[in-house]
């Protein structure tokens, strides 16, 4: 399904980033980092128009020849980025949305952990499991 899933802090440093082990991890780091440009652009555009009734899902951030990069931003400005292989044409927008929702829920659980220090990188088995589930599932 997804080839790379990243959670990025409000301050734009990665809280969690995982890609398919078979692929070049570094490339995804660059891709996700660059996508922050578009995320910021979209957030500021949305901020102008809607105020607080903001859609969390940012949609397709930008396509590349090989990948499609989707974005999602929580109300606390934590960003989720999902990179999907372009050849994977079966994924519809709705499925991406539901992936983000799942990710958000799991992320919320991580934040609710009293032993988790907000701002630290995410080291949670449950979260890992959710992410793995999204990456393994082939559709």
């Amino acid at each position: 399904m997804a080839v790379c899933i990243a959670v990025i802090a409000k301050e734009n440093y990665p809280l969690y980033i995982r890609s398919l082990p078979t692929q070049n991890e570094l490339k995804f780091h660059y891709t996700v980092h660059t996508s922050l440009d578009v995320v910021e652009e979209k957030i500021s555009a949305a901020g102008k128009s809607l105020g607080d009734q903001r859609e969390l899902y940012l949609g397709l951030l930008y396509p590349t020849e090989d990948y499609k990069v989707y974005g999602y931003v929580t109300n606390s400005k934590v960003k989720f980025v999902i990179v999907v292989d372009s050849s994977n044409t079966s994924l519809r927008d709705n499925e991406i949305r539901s992936m983000f929702r799942k990710l958000h829920n799991s992320f919320t659980d991580v934040m609710c952990n009293p032993f988790h220090n907000p701002g630290d990188t995410i080291q949670s088995k449950a979260f890992d499991g959710i992410v793995s589930g999204m990456m393994v599932q082939t559709g």
Binding site: E25, H29, L36
Partner: peptide, 13 residues
């Protein structure tokens, strides 16, 4: 840019 935003893998590379 990478250092200021804490992206360690791009930093290393």
């Amino acid at each position: 840019s990478y250092t200021s935003e804490g992206w360690s893998l791009p930093v290393t590379h």
